[in-house]
């Protein structure tokens, strides 16, 4: 008849600890096992004729076609063209987005002049500009790169602008009591303070630029991964289309990893919990 209760955690022996560890490996294996099983089922369905190759090629066929496309240079060439387009578009987007965000973030007049039109423009779906771009710039590289640039610029601008505006005014005040010049304040306070938001914007921008690229290359192009896929459509080559999809997937994954790496390196000053959080 006592009011006291004893609170204890589960007592872990070495054996029990070993068990949890092996359980954890099992869980991670299970995560990869499920997609693997699905791919195997897909292969079996194709081999047994349940799935027509007109609808979807078998995984083995995709691997073989992929290898052939690499050997005859089709894939490297088209990949190079696509990467160049995405890269130059993104580069343009970063340059423009950062410049505009600095203008509108660092001065009130700049904000009035720059922010309002951009806020209006950002509500337009960038993809709807395609017909206009073709009329203006023809079907060369310019409209494709510009489409990527315009689409990717908005996430950069919006996030960096927000980042600059949300700098703690107390830090700016402190910089002023320390006698920092305007330029030093921008370099040491505003830019590093807005960097986390810029990187968030960059991650979105990279995703958007792939999206824009797919559309640009499928509407009118004579090269690039998107063109390769559209070409394959004419010949019912689902295997080539799927190779293209796979390449887009890998590109998206890799660029995300690069931005994540940048975040972990450049934002080392954050406490661990906030590093590399998923978007």
């Amino acid at each position: 008849m006592s009011d006291a209760i004893t609170l204890t955690g589960p007592y872990k022996t070495a054996e029990a600890k070993g068990k949890t560890r092996s359980l954890r490996t099992l869980v991670s294996i299970r995560r990869y096992a499920s997609p693997l099983v699905l791919v195997c089922l897909w292969q079996v369905a194709c081999s047994l004729g349940f799935l027509s190759t007109r609808l979807v090629a078998s995984p083995l066929q995709i691997v073989v076609t992929g290898w052939t496309l690499v050997r005859d240079g089709t894939l490297p060439f088209n990949l190079g063209v696509s990467l160049l387009r995405a890269g130059s578009g993104l580069g343009l987007a970063i340059t423009l987005g950062v410049a505009l965000a600095l203008i509108s973030g660092l001065s009130r007049i700049g904000e009035d002049v720059v922010d309002a039109p951009l806020q209006i423009l950002r509500t337009l779906p960038a993809l709807a500009l395609v017909p206009l771009y073709i009329l203006w710039f023809g079907i060369g590289e310019t409209p494709k790169i510009l489409l990527v640039a315009v689409g990717a610029m908005f996430p950069i601008y919006l996030n960096l602008h927000k980042g600059i505006r949300s700098i703690d005014p107390k830090l700016v005040e402190m910089a002023s009591t320390l006698g920092l010049s305007r330029w030093q304040t921008i370099r040491d306070v505003f830019l590093p303070g807005a960097l986390p938001d810029f990187l968030t914007g960059l991650r979105y921008a990279v995703g958007v630029s792939w999206l824009m690229l797919v559309v640009a290359e499928q509407v009118n192009a004579e090269s690039g991964i998107g063109h390769m896929m559209m070409d394959a459509q004419d010949f019912l080559r689902t295997d080539i289309i799927l190779v293209g999809l796979l390449v887009y997937g890998v590109l998206g994954l890799m660029s995300d990893q690069i931005v994540r790496f940048l975040e972990n390196t450049l934002l080392a000053w954050r406490p661990d919990g906030r590093k590399g959080r998923s978007a």
Binding site: K170, L171, E173, M174, T177, D188, P192, G193, W269
Partner: peptide, 12 residues
């Protein structure tokens, strides 16, 4: 000046 909050730049 030393303020009530330390006002150190977290990124330096």
């Amino acid at each position: 000046v030393v303020f009530q909050e330390h006002r150190l730049l977290p990124w330096k």
